[in-house]
């Protein structure tokens, strides 16, 4: 059944979408200013601030972010899949508690995590170390990979695994040939969400990052505390462009909705 929206609802939706999009639009416009201060270009457009990014230390920070996010998302996924299988497929005491524990970083403020991690890493000697930073991100993004892995497993017919078993497949073969291919779209969605979360993370990272491991959000944050110029706007616009490009590619290859809904199977 489809019902048409009334005029009031249409106005509301339009206002809502405008509210979400307006800041992004403003940032993208500011990025093209020829001036040395934040302004929306009216008469002239310029790529000057995009050129300025090139050769700045934002580029290495960007790569550090990509590297940290990819490593953290992959590690989180690697831990999540066995954890999801154990909790979705087997009954054991403390099962609920384990899931709640893995999902708990969602509830802890990142500031608190940042302080705690800083202290902890100082104790075990992991400061100024990319590994420490990645592990911190794993903790934060684990709920996303786990949730999507659990959803993919829950959406899968148990009997499909049994059918494979009855046909002679060992547990490992069942996982490799049947379970994994079926839940793969869900896992990919989880990885993507986790990557975005990690890439975006500032609050906790500020505490843990060291000069060698300054991620892009941290670098941008440091930059705007000293300077107000359209450079950060240009970086933001470039990131938005990159995100749109990635989404378009993903849509072509997989179908985004399927990926982010975390559905397995068909």
């Amino acid at each position: 059944m489809t019902r048409r929206n009334g005029p009031l609802a249409l106005v509301f939706h339009a206002a809502f979408i405008a509210f979400i999009l307006a800041p992004l639009v403003v940032v993208c416009l500011v990025a093209f200013t020829p001036e040395a201060y934040l302004s929306i270009p009216t008469t002239r457009w310029s790529l000057r601030w995009f050129k300025a990014i090139w050769g700045s230390d934002f580029i290495p920070a960007f790569w550090i972010s990509v590297y940290v996010a990819a490593a953290a998302a992959s590690l989180a996924l690697l831990v999540s899949v066995p954890a999801a299988i154990a909790t979705a497929r087997f009954q054991f005491p403390g099962r609920e508690a384990l899931v709640a524990y893995f999902l708990s970083p969602l509830m802890v403020p990142h500031v608190v995590l940042g302080v705690a991690l800083l202290r902890f890493m100082a104790e075990v000697g992991l400061t100024a170390n990319a590994f420490g930073l990645i592990m911190g991100h794993v903790v934060i993004i684990m709920p996303f990979t786990l949730r999507l892995a659990l959803a993919a497993l829950a959406g899968m017919d148990r009997h499909v695994e049994w059918a494979a078993g009855s046909l002679g497949a060992s547990d490992l073969t069942v996982f490799r040939r049947v379970t994994l291919p079926i839940i793969l779209p869900g896992l990919a969605g989880g990885w993507l969400l986790a990557f975005i979360q990690s890439f975006d993370e500032l609050t906790m990272t500020v505490f843990v990052a060291s000069p060698g491991t300054t991620t892009l959000p941290v670098r941008m944050f440091q930059y705007i505390t000293d300077n107000i110029d359209p450079m950060v706007a240009a970086i933001s616009a470039a990131l938005i462009g990159l995100a749109i490009l990635l989404m378009a590619v993903m849509e072509r290859v997989y179908g985004l909705e399927r990926l982010l809904a975390g559905k397995g199977g068909d």
Binding site: H159, A163, A164, S166, L167
Partner: peptide, 19 residues
């Protein structure tokens, strides 16, 4: 173990491998 029993099963949901 189930994979050593040489039993053929047809499930209610058919449980075909979708991929």
């Amino acid at each position: 173990k189930p994979n050593r029993r040489n039993i053929g099963i047809v499930f209610q949901s058919f449980a075909l491998f979708p991929h």
